[in-house]
Design a protein around this nucleic acid. Structure first.
Lengths: 259, 259
DNA sequence: AATGGCCGTTGCGCATGATGCAACGCACTG
DNA sequence: CAGTGCGTTGCATCATGCGCAACGGCCATT
């Protein structure tokens, strides 16, 4: 692995937190100022980093453009979206789509609730990996050694009393999820929010993404939400079928095609 | 500028075009395979690049996560304020900045008029959502189902005879606003007060805030106020560019003062 | 107005780390 | 079963990225 590039790339997550000065970057990277400057300049030349008038650095327009292209390149998203929208239409609740990539679970799509109730997460933010239904689904499908390695490398923040407490409990939960083919999170992240999720199987049979329906219990109780399970599973299967090349059932015009 | 980093970063736009094999990357970079491999591995370790089953590389979801995190951390007010102050300086009128959150539109910044006018707005307070220019701008950008849901759940108080009367009229107005890219409120909240507003686009291209210039018609007529529109739009675009990290990019320190 | 500290910037000599090469392994093909 | 194409590895060479030290602008302090 290339040390120079490694350092340069380490700057990006750092700047994602907020603007930082040259000195701050140098300190956090543990390199000399002049080194940090050179790296930042290179990033700047590529437009990944932006320099504001106060000379501090932020992420730049190019990075946003690339990010946009990155999600658009994910076929799953384009294929799944109409299905997710339809599910949202029928249930009225917020629907999420997430993928797993190298130890991270990332939301890549979301269809908002019709209810004008604020939902906790925005797409893109790394998921609360130890509790979210989608995270459980994605991790549950990993081969056993990797699953354990990931589980043991995680923090287990106690968002609520119902949050997953530790690696042991998490692995047990993953086993259950794997077994039953769906997952739920009942107030494990935010006390009043529940969600139910299902896995999306790719052509190779492995779980390539996960979806979930979330709602605060001021709108529906956990029991009512869980009653949507069959519908969610059916949607997940429909998406999976289409991913595997099955003809898309003639729903709405499935415009947003992927190639 | 660092050559190694430069090469590594050149890979990203290349992959944005579509998945590519190691050999293709090496060729396009004009470096040896082994060099390209090392660079790709480093990018991969940082999650910026993902390796699909067929061993070809594409952009990683982490890029999206980074961008999204940066968007959330954006200090819209801090970036916008100098521009708003400058606009206030030039026009003399009250300037507002607002965002949409949890079904409400709230002011997050305000630069007072140089004229002795009283206006019922305060930072942190909700906006008269059915009539204010900023509210129209923010709601006009919501996805259609949510927009309709919100519009239908609102009250439509008749502050004045020119207030938006009902959901139908409001949705029609939102469509117009969305189309034209700016909004006005001519005496819809307080009989004698007019305002003109423009949307602020965030890095993801969506409207993340809205600004407006307001003045009572004892100071300027509605026509005169509307004549400021180009100036307001220009300001909004400048803020948007800065929010997005668009790079005019002066390397050398000498650049000082407004452009 | 003068001073000192802070922070970004520059040029340079040194050694570290990035480079290309050549050889290997693997999968697919004729 | 050779032959081809592509990804991977270890290594010797030297280009390149590194830290240092010194400079200069800006701001707050006296």
């Amino acid at each position: 692995m290339s040390q120079t590039v490694d350092r340069a790339l380490s700057i990006l997550p750092l700047l994602a937190e907020g603007p930082a000065s040259l000195e701050q970057v140098a300190t956090r990277l543990d390199v000399h100022k002049s080194t940090a400057l050179r790296l930042l300049r290179t990033l700047h030349d590529h437009g990944l980093v932006y320099r504001q008038q106060d000379q501090r650095y932020r992420l730049g327009a190019r990075l946003f453009a690339l990010a946009q292209q990155a999600v658009e390149a994910l076929d799953i998203r384009g294929i799944a979206h109409p299905h997710l929208a339809a599910l949202n239409e029928r249930t009225g609740h917020t629907v999420h789509l997430a993928v797993y990539e190298q130890g991270e679970v990332v939301y890549i799509d979301k269809v908002e609730s019709r209810y004008p109730v604020r939902m906790y997460s925005r797409i893109g933010r790394p998921v609360a990996i130890t509790v979210a239904a989608v995270a459980k689904l994605l991790l549950a499908d990993l081969p056993e050694p990797e699953r354990r390695a990931v589980a043991e490398g995680l923090d287990y923040p106690r968002y609520t009393p119902r949050s997953t407490p530790d690696a042991g409990a998490f692995l047990a939960e993953l086993a259950r999820v794997r077994e039953q083919g769906w997952a739920s999170d009942l107030g494990g992240h935010e006390e009043s929010i529940n969600c139910v999720g299902a896995p999306l199987h790719g052509p190779d049979g492995r779980v390539c993404a996960a979806m979930s329906v979330s709602a605060p219990n001021v709108v529906v109780t956990a029991e009512e939400l869980l009653r949507l399970r069959p519908q969610i599973l059916r949607t997940a299967e429909a998406i999976g079928a289409e991913l595997s090349g099955a003809a898309p059932a003639a729903h709405h015009p499935a415009t947003k095609g992927a190639t």
